Simulated scan of single mutants.
Amino acid sequence: MRSAVIWLLDANALDDADFDGFLACLSEAELLRYRRFVRPLRQREFLLGRILLRFTVARLAGIGFETVQVIEREGHAPLVRLPDSCVVNPHFSLSHSRGWIACATSADTPLGIDIEALDAGRDVEALARSAFSVAESDWLSGCIAADRIEAFYALWSSKEALYKLISNQASEAALPELVAGGERLQSGSDWQACTWSQQGFAISLCSSKALTTVEQICLTGPTPAMWQQQLAA
């Protein structure tokens, strides 16, 4: 039975003072990347994303938070290194949007996740014409006007999540079109997709194998210790 967990964290709800101890958890390569970000929000998303990644992988593997090492890779998602004694091979994917961080984990199958804020002020049909295939753009234009914003971000996030899934598998396969015969596709020969719309965001999760269960957990509090207390309650 294949399963996954989507962990969500709202960085906007946390004070900068809460992050003082987090920088000490980062590797030198992570610190260098952190310092390259100009925008404070992007720094915050990166920092909390790396802390959330350590926490969720440690929980999946049943090991201590401090034993998870994160290896930066230029132009690619990070890798995690666990103690040699650990028998779990964790699969994970990270995403962020407007201060929200999403991390998906699974012990069973590679994943790709994307979170996108729904922006009603954007010309989504123009964006679709430049970023989507003709079939995908035509599908969006055929949606009811009142549903078009949500439909655009659902398709956009699915494409982003599928791209991450392909990348996480070190595959050179081309990103497939997600509309065929005028219908939006939810699966292919080697991928499955699920999309949710909640709290003003579209969240898409792609996996290489069908998932039996997908749990969503929204963490509160500023530290991994408090997240652990929340989960134990």
Rank of each mutant, 00 (worst) to 15 (best):
I115Q: 05
L175H: 03
C143T: 14
F22G: 02
L231M: 14
C206D: 10
Q228R: 15
R54Q: 02
G142Q: 05
L79A: 12
D108T: 09
G200R: 10
I51N: 01
Q192R: 15
V80I: 12
E172P: 12
T213P: 07
I115K: 04
L52V: 04
A232H: 06
A154T: 15
F19G: 05
D16N: 15
E160I: 03
K159S: 08
R122P: 10
P83E: 09
V5H: 11
S85F: 08
A193T: 07
A13K: 08
V80Q: 03
A151N: 07
A58F: 11
E125N: 15
E150F: 09
D18S: 15
Q198I: 15
L175N: 08
Q230F: 12
W156D: 00
L9P: 01
T195Q: 05
W227A: 13
Q192D: 13
A24Q: 11
A29Q: 07
A131P: 13
Q199E: 14
C143V: 14
A170P: 03
R54W: 02
S93F: 10
R42Y: 09
A126Q: 14
R2V: 04
E125A: 14
S27R: 03
G121I: 03
S171H: 10
V87F: 11
D10C: 05
I217F: 08
C194W: 13
Q198E: 13
V38D: 05
Q69N: 08
G121T: 11
G221I: 09
A146P: 10
R54A: 05
L52H: 01
G112A: 12
S133K: 09
A4S: 01
S171E: 04
L205G: 01
L79K: 04
A61L: 01
L127N: 04
S171D: 06
D20L: 12
L165Y: 02
S187W: 09
V124H: 02
L9Q: 02
S197T: 15
W156I: 01
I217G: 00
I144G: 09
Q228W: 06
G200L: 09
V124L: 09
P90S: 00
F132R: 08
C143G: 13
R148S: 13
I149G: 00
N89R: 14
E28G: 07
E160K: 06
E74M: 13
